[in-house]
């Protein structure tokens, strides 16, 4: 006894009774030919991936049956071809795994297993991601140190960050030239020794508020970019606001330079947040 499975699509435009009748018709035909019907699965109306005979949807049925010889399939398919109501059909022989699969599916095991597998895979992926991330962070730190020889303390606000936060223009301009005022340092909760060392530390906008930058990170990362919104919270001393002319010019240049490297900067900010969190 071999087990077969025939899937076919019935035109959906027919009255409901006729669809049922068509299915019953084929079932009877199989039974008459001495097949043992295992199961009739009514999948239901589905959207077709492409139109067939001007139909955009179809009613799917699957009949599973056992037969001694395969001769019945020719007869069945001939009637399918003659029947105008049938859009498509496909007969497949089921091997042992297929039979088992269908049984499991009927018992609801397949869906269960699928969900479990999906969960498992998601978990595995998350673990691996965490691992690679940690590795990356570990690789990053030392390389950054030697990569940035900093002769002069210098603060910068990346141009596009300033833009997005919509800071008043004059504040943004004044900011980079100034060595970060003491009260700013307080609000960002940078440890005192960092503030003293004070070459330049980049504090990304979103991190600044929430994260207390640990001392070692700050050391490893000698540039401080004071983000615009921090600047907002702090009252900038009056003399700061009136920055010397030459200084502002320099900033403008810096801004251009930075603008060229904006994508780079953003990446760096991203890294920073990572390493900060790890700290």
């Amino acid at each position: 006894m071999r087990q077969y499975e025939t899937t076919f699509i019935v035109a959906p435009a027919l009255p409901d009774g006729e669809i049922k009748k068509a299915v019953k018709n084929y079932k009877d035909l199989l039974e008459k030919e001495g097949c043992e019907i295992v199961h009739v699965d009514e999948i239901g109306v589905r959207q077709l991936a492409y139109p067939i005979k001007r139909n955009n949807s179809g009613v799917y049925f699957t009949i599973e049956y056992k037969t001694e010889t395969g001769e019945i399939i020719d007869k069945l398919e001939l009637t399918f071809r003659r029947d105008e109501r049938i859009l498509r059909f496909l007969s497949v022989r089921l091997e042992k795994y297929g039979i088992k699969y269908n049984e499991d599916k009927r018992a609801g095991i397949i869906d269960e297993r699928k969900n479990k597998l999906a969960a498992e895979r998601a978990k595995e992926r998350a673990e691996q991601d965490a691992k690679t991330k940690a590795q990356k962070a570990a690789n990053k730190k030392p390389s950054r140190k030697k990569g940035k020889p900093k002769p002069k303390p210098e603060a910068e606000a990346p141009a596009d960050v300033a833009k997005t936060v919509e800071v008043p223009a004059d504040v943004a301009k004044a900011e980079p030239t100034v060595e970060v005022p003491a009260d700013v340092a307080k609000t960002v909760e940078v440890p005192a020794d960092v503030a003293k060392a004070e070459p330049t530390v980049e504090v990304p906008a979103d991190v600044a508020k929430t994260v207390e930058v640990p001392a070692d990170v700050a050391k490893a990362e000698p540039t401080v970019e004071v983000p615009a919104d921090v600047a907002k919270t702090v009252e900038v001393p009056a003399d700061v606001a009136k920055a010397p002319e030459e200084a502002t010019i320099e900033t403008a240049d810096a801004a251009v330079d930075i603008a060229e490297e904006v994508s780079l900067d953003m990446d760096i900010l991203g890294d920073l947040t990572d390493s900060d969190n790890k700290g």
């Binding site: 990053k140 950054r144 780079l264 760096i268």
Partner: peptide, 12 residues
């Protein structure tokens, strides 16, 4: 800038 481009994070 020169220092930066030679840095490792250029790979991003």
């Amino acid at each position: 800038r020169a220092g930066r481009t030679s840095r490792e994070d250029i790979k991003f």
